[in-house]
Design a protein around this nucleic acid. Structure first.
Length: 146
DNA sequence: TGCATAATAACGA
DNA sequence: TCGTTATTATGCA
C-alpha cells in the first residue's frame, strides 16, 4: 500500500503537462476573480518555463520585459516614456512595438503600460475602442488602477 | 543598407 | 484639440 501512496506522491510532484496547464488555468481564474497575484512569479513557481528571452532576442526588448516584470507589479501602472527613461532610451514608439510582439499578454503585464497623458494606449496590436483595448481597460479596473 | 512602420511625445496654431 | 514633427528599434526587401 505504501508504494501506491508513493506513486501518487510522485505523480503529484511530477507535474506533467496536464497538471501544469490545470495549475495555470486555476491561477488565471483566481487572477480574474480579483485575487492579487503576480502571474509571472506564480508561474515560475509552478516550474513552467516561460522563456521570453527566446522571443525577444534583442537587448532592447529584454530590457523592456525585465523592467516590466520586476517593477510593474499588480495594481501598478507605468508609461511608455517611463520605460524609456528606465532603460535609458527615448524610443517610446519602439517600446510599443515590443509590447505588440509580446507573446504572453497578461503574464507579461503589457496591459499595465499606458500613455503618459493618461490615455490607455493600445493593446494586442489595436489602438482604439476595439475589444482588445476594452480588455486592457477591464484588466486595469480589475486591478484597481482605473 | 534603406525604407516603412509603430500600442508615443511634445509643440504650435 | 488638431496637425505636425521629432525620434528610435524592428522587420522586410
Amino acid at each position: 500500500m505504501k508504494h501506491i501512496e508513493n506513486n501518487k506522491l510522485e505523480l503529484a510532484n511530477n507535474n506533467n503537462s496536464i497538471d501544469k496547464i490545470n495549475n495555470l488555468v486555476n491561477l488565471i481564474k483566481n487572477y480574474l476573480s480579483g485575487e492579487e497575484i503576480n502571474l509571472y512569479q506564480k508561474i515560475n513557481n509552478l516550474d513552467i518555463e516561460i522563456s521570453f528571452e527566446k522571443k525577444f532576442p534583442t537587448v532592447f526588448a529584454q530590457k523592456v520585459m525585465k523592467f516590466l516584470i520586476e517593477n510593474v507589479q499588480y495594481g501598478k501602472t507605468t508609461t511608455y516614456s517611463d520605460i524609456g527613461e528606465a532603460i535609458g532610451s527615448k524610443a517610446f514608439r519602439a517600446i510599443g512595438n515590443v509590447m505588440k510582439s509580446n507573446p504572453l499578454p497578461l503574464i507579461i503585464p503589457c496591459h499595465r503600460v499606458i500613455r503618459k497623458n493618461g490615455g490607455l494606449g493600445g493593446f494586442m496590436g489595436k489602438m482604439d475602442k476595439v475589444w482588445q483595448t476594452n480588455l486592457k481597460l477591464t484588466l486595469l479596473k480589475l486591478e484597481g488602477s482605473r
